[in-house]
Design a binder for these strands. Structure first.
Length: 617
DNA sequence: TTAGGGTTAG
């Protein structure tokens, strides 16, 4: 006790600037006579320790060391508060940090209460700590309350509040605080800019991000590498990869993080080849890729495009050479992207070579197998992971339940469902969505419906899975009534819903309500979606209304090979061989490569109209 | 004393 008191005394004698609330509440010390203060305090210390206990400054950590639990620490704080002793900022911060360590929000509230009683809520340092703790516990509103009550805010307080909103994906609130800061004459520093740019790193943040870019340029942060890197990141994440590249190219100085941000941005926008070029360039310029570089470039978006496998293998070779083949996260990413780029064998090789595997490794491999037509192997691995003591999570279940349909799948899907039930995930919304989808896909529309009916919460995916399943099973009427019920329940259909319901319509051949769905799709502004358009062309052909199909086809802004094939098949089946054939030629003139179904349709035309056309093919 | 740019599984 004496030791820590002396520390405090020393601080006073050196004239350390104290926040008013930290000064002795019951002492007569003030102003000038430092030596007198020291002498008086020393006298108190020596002559009457008991009396001093009640009035002296309580030094933070050392005093609280005696408290082994949070409640003991809080009791001590309360005791001192009750006795009228002043509790300094260190002590509050110490006890707040203990609360945070144990994620004990109830205790935080109690400390907050003491802080209010002692008036320390106006201490920017204490207030900042309190805000941070609230933010880290997910209580941004409580942090905001502390912030709003703070009369004199410093740059830390502003930045913490902005950063809190950034962490919780609330760009509009972050901007509001940032603007308020500027209006009140606060001067953002580099950390403030990092925080606000993080908040704006999302599609809705772009318009604000651009404004902040201007502030940064005028504020003298043009050569600040972290701030400029944050700008690159903001543009990349908000969808403006061109602006990201512009900022990146203009930077006079960069570090590994800058390169990672730019590479990751390009990869996430599907520019895999460009990301790979930059990956090579950074090394030419003497930068050594770290694990984040590999994680950034190995994203599914970049790696699942045509021709990606070549450079993915090249990146893999670099990773091995640099020793990252023992980095679990890098290997997990490799398993994932190899599966996505269609090389499940490479994925398997990486997976089997891994020394350590976590739930992500297993889920990535299981998902990769499931989606590449190896459902049974995926299921075996799902059982194996559990034998090895790794517990499947929601993603594992969703991964395995998005398998491609294969013979005998229903049997293992039921077993997976059982496992999910036992794991307490049987009614998880995401798992249920995947179950509805998978049951329908593997042939049991009844099981799909059972899961669907038992769900308490449904979203558009749930409805789509069920409607699509019914449509595929030829239950057009049921699909259509479910579509109507979905609308009655206020769920807004998306392109997939219209696509599914149109497939169901085609199977029933009822032109009347097909036209009604078309009308609704137009109303929803989804008739320009290529998938909906394709379904409409297909459906009009099926119902025999070739003129409606052609009208739809001609009006489509975007067409793909499915559009052309649907129209050609429709014409062929409706005895319009000549028109089908000319469209077949036009399709190729426009650069579309016919697929097997296209050829099948056109060959049908040829057999019925004579062999002359075959030679032209 | 406090605020802090990038990162893997559906």
């Amino acid at each position: 006790m004496v030791v820590c008191l002396q520390v405090q005394i020393h601080r006073i004698s050196l004239g350390t600037s104290f926040w008013p609330g930290e000064q002795l509440q019951h002492s007569s010390f003030s102003g000038s006579a430092k030596h007198e203060k020291h002498r008086n305090l020393s006298l108190v210390c020596v002559s009457n320790m008991r009396e001093f206990d009640q009035t002296a400054l309580v030094s933070a950590g050392k005093y609280l060391q005696n408290a082994s639990t949070i409640s003991e620490a809080i009791s001590l704080v309360k005791k001192h508060l009750h006795q009228g002793s002043t509790i300094d900022s260190y002590m509050y911060v110490d006890v707040l940090q203990r609360c945070f360590k144990h994620k004990d929000l109830t205790s935080v509230k109690q400390v907050h209460d003491c802080i209010l009683k002692s008036g320390m809520d106006q201490n920017p340092y204490v207030a900042n700590k309190l805000m941070r703790v609230y933010i880290r516990c997910g209580k941004v509103q409580d942090a905001r309350h502390v912030f709003d009550k703070l009369v004199k805010k410093n740059v830390f307080n502003w930045t913490t509040m902005i950063g809190g909103y950034a962490e919780h994906g609330r760009p509009a609130d972050a901007i509001e605080v940032y603007n308020q800061m500027r209006q009140e004459g606060g001067r953002p520093n580099e950390v403030t800019y990092l925080s606000i740019l993080k908040a704006c790193a999302c599609p809705v943040g772009l318009k604000w991000g651009k404004e902040i870019h201007a502030h940064i340029s005028h504020g003298g942060f043009r050569s600040d590498v972290p701030v400029q890197t944050a700008l690159v990141n903001m543009y990349a994440k908000s969808g403006s990869i061109k602006d990201a590249r512009l900022v990146f190219d203009e930077m006079a100085e960069r570090n590994v993080i800058t390169w990672n941000v730019m590479i990751g941005g390009l990869a996430q926008h599907g520019f895999g080849q460009e990301a790979f070029s930059l990956f090579l360039q950074m090394q030419e310029e003497g930068f050594v890729p770290d694990s984040t570089t590999y994680l950034s470039i190995l994203t599914a978006t970049a790696c699942s495009s045509a021709g990606a496998l070549g450079w993915v293998k090249e990146v893999h070779r670099h990773a091995v050479k640099a020793g990252f083949d023992s980095d679990m996260r890098v290997c997990n990413a490799l398993v994932h992207v190899y599966s996505k780029s269609g090389s499940v064998d490479d994925a398997r090789l990486v997976f089997e070579g891994m020394l350590d595997r976590d739930v992500i490794s297993w889920s990535a491999m299981i998902g990769g197998l499931a989606q590449n037509g190896c459902g049974h192997e995926a299921f075996s691995l799902f059982l194996k992971m559990q034998r090895e003591g790794v517990i499947p999570n929601v993603t594992t279940y969703v991964s395995i339940l998005t398998a491609s349909a294969s013979a005998g799948a229903l049997e293992w899907v039921k077993q997976v469902h059982n496992h999910a039930r036992k794991a307490g995930l049987g009614s998880d919304f995401r798992v249920c969505n995947a179950l509805v989808h998978m049951y329908a896909k593997s042939g049991s529309i009844d099981d799909a419906r059972l899961v669907f009916d038992q769900m308490s919460v449904r979203n558009v995916f749930t409805w789509n899975a069920m409607i699509g399943g019914l449509a595929q099973h030829g239950c057009g009427q049921e699909a259509f009534s479910l579509f109507l019920r979905m609308r009655r329940e206020g769920v807004v259909p998306d392109a997939i819903t219209y696509m599914s319901i149109l497939n169901a319509s085609a199977s029933t051949g009822a032109l009347g309500w097909v036209k009604e769905v078309h009308r609704q799709a137009v109303q929803a502004g989804l008739d320009s979606d290529v998938r909906v358009g394709n379904a409409l062309v297909h459906m009009y052909c099926k119902t025999g209304s070739i003129s409606d199909a052609r009208l739809m086809f001609d009006g489509m802004v975007e067409r793909d090979v499915i559009t052309w094939t649907a129209m050609i098949s429709g014409l062929a089946q409706n005895e319009c061989g000549q028109e089908a054939f000319s469209l077949f030629l036009q399709m190729q003139r426009e650069g579309f490569i016919p697929v097997a179904t296209t050829y099948a349709s056109i060959l049908n035309v040829c057999t019925s109209t004579g062999l002359a056309m075959v030679e032209e093919i």
